[in-house]
Amino acid sequence: MDTATSAPAPPDRISPTKRRIHLGRWGVHAVLLAYSLLALGPTLLIIMNSLKSRSAIFDDAFSLPTSETFDLVGYDTVLNGSSFDVYFRNSFIVTVASVLLVVFFSAMAAFALAEYDFKGNTMLALYLAIGIMIPIRLGTVSILKLMVSLGLINTLWALILVYTAMGLPLGVFLMTQFMRQVPRELKSAARVDGANEYRVFGLVLPLVRPGMAAVAVFTMLPVWNDLWFPLILAPAEDTRTVTLGASAFLGQFERNWNALLAALTLAMVPIILLYVIFSRQFLRGLTEGAIK
């Protein structure tokens, strides 16, 4: 570098900008790390202690299991005689079915709302959107009566229908926003090419995939975690969801700490794993939905 001779020497003190940035950077890390500990700590404490013997749990809750304190007695108790497989299956069916129905039906409705200019379009959109603001739980009394008269009590269908109705308002609203972004030319081109409306819809669907992902994520969380409706509409042993099942199941072990900790671990580890694996997609869906 022959310029070094002609150029003034760079200042050899550390630049204040740099210093400030570094300080800031460490500050950011410190705060986020502290909060991460707060977010993870309780969960880790449970998992850690579920692997320890009873006396170790109480003697020193904050130490990792060692070869002396390692004990799987809790898991023995829990795995013998639990119906977690049934609960998981129920939750899975209910969640997947509700999410699929919400995504598909809201895509259809949103397509119509965004695409056709018919009388009452705005009114209908508003009608469907009101549900975003009103918790469906307030209608529980009548929902219960309705389900009784339809003979759907203690069936998964009761849950699926209610959750679908619950997810639709937000779903339609979000999908309409996404549908509006699909270029008009594309739909016109398809129609000119002789596509009927169903085909046009089929053509548009893949283009609003981010929207469908967002709706799916927004629907999934409250459905999977709901305790209220399973408790009221489907409390029978064979229709319990994980949430309700875990609630009742954990209740049985009020005094058996090994079993409690093991059961908690079993109930949350699959979710945590799923979440960690799909967190990128999951959070992207939430992010995209949030700004609509």
Binding site: A7, P8, P10, P11, S15, T17, K18
Partner: peptide
Amino acid sequence: AGLEDVTEGVVEIDGRIVNAET
């Protein structure tokens, strides 16, 4: 502009070295 750190070299405004300035 000062929106990007200078890796090497010197930026001067009116003979004042501004590398370190915001």
